[in-house]
Amino acid sequence: MSEHTQPTGATAYSGTATGQPDHTTPPYSDRPVAFRGPDSLGGLLLILAGIAAAISLPLSWLAAADISGLDLVRAGFETPQDIYDEGLWQPMTVIFGGGLLLVLGILMWLPAKTHRTLGVLGLVVSVAAGVGILVPLADDGWDLATYDLGFWFAVAVPVLGLLGSLKAMFTGPRYPR
């Protein structure tokens, strides 16, 4: 029996007879490359969360007293040692969380293959802001008449932040069609 050898020359065979790779194969991957682009909707929702936090600053948070969000933040900075005892950590968490969500929303407008890391960071900030909203509501027995317009803008911060963060987390890279 004669041993059959692969012919050398121009063939459809992708390799040489010795099993070494052919030098004409491309050095790049044949898989599609992900587009780098902004996450417009996720970024917009996070920017809106930051704007809602800014709007809540001059507005009254409590219906019974004329206390604005800015007054609460100032009181938190004046007595930082009593921030937890007096319950001032909640408005400060919501306001500064809104500021962080604004920055994360702006960063989501920068081109990237995916914005999942920013989405996870936004989710952590949104959960912290949500705790800052739910704790005073639970302490007051879920009496919604206690709060004024500024507080309801503050409620929008974790809600919009959660939506924008989840959008960024669950949107994967886009590939050409």
Rank of each mutant, 00 (worst) to 15 (best):
I106N: 01
L41V: 14
Y84I: 14
A65G: 00
D140W: 06
G76P: 00
V94T: 11
M92L: 13
D139W: 02
L59T: 01
L107I: 08
G43M: 04
Y147C: 13
G69I: 05
L149T: 14
K167D: 12
G132N: 03
A17V: 01
A49P: 03
A129Q: 07
L41C: 01
T18D: 15
P111F: 10
I47H: 04
L144I: 08
D85L: 14
A75N: 06
Q81I: 05
A63G: 01
L163E: 09
V127K: 07
V157I: 02
E3F: 12
G19A: 07
D30W: 02
M1K: 04
L72P: 00
P21G: 01
G43H: 02
L110I: 11
E86I: 02
G105Y: 01
M92H: 02
D39Q: 12
L59I: 03
L162T: 14
A49F: 04
V135R: 10
V124A: 15
L121H: 11
L163A: 15
L107F: 11
A10W: 07
S14V: 03
R36N: 12
T117I: 15
L48C: 10
P26V: 11
I67C: 07
G97W: 01
L41N: 02
T79G: 14
I55C: 06
G42D: 09
F35E: 13
A145C: 03
L162W: 07
R74C: 00
G97L: 05
Q90R: 04
V127N: 04
P158N: 06
I83R: 13
T11H: 10
D148K: 10
I95D: 03
D82A: 15
V33Q: 15
L107S: 02
T93M: 11
G69V: 07
L72I: 00
F35S: 10
P38K: 09
G43F: 06
L166S: 02
P80S: 11
L59A: 06
Y175V: 08
A34L: 05
G97Q: 03
I51D: 01
A63Y: 01
T117H: 10
L160Y: 04
G132T: 03
D143Q: 13
A63L: 01
D82W: 08
A138M: 14
V94D: 05
L102M: 14
M108Y: 00
T146C: 04
A63P: 00
A145H: 09
G98E: 03
G69K: 13
A168F: 02
L166H: 02
V135K: 09
V157E: 03
L101K: 04
R116D: 08
A154I: 01
T8N: 11
G141H: 08
V157F: 05
R116P: 10
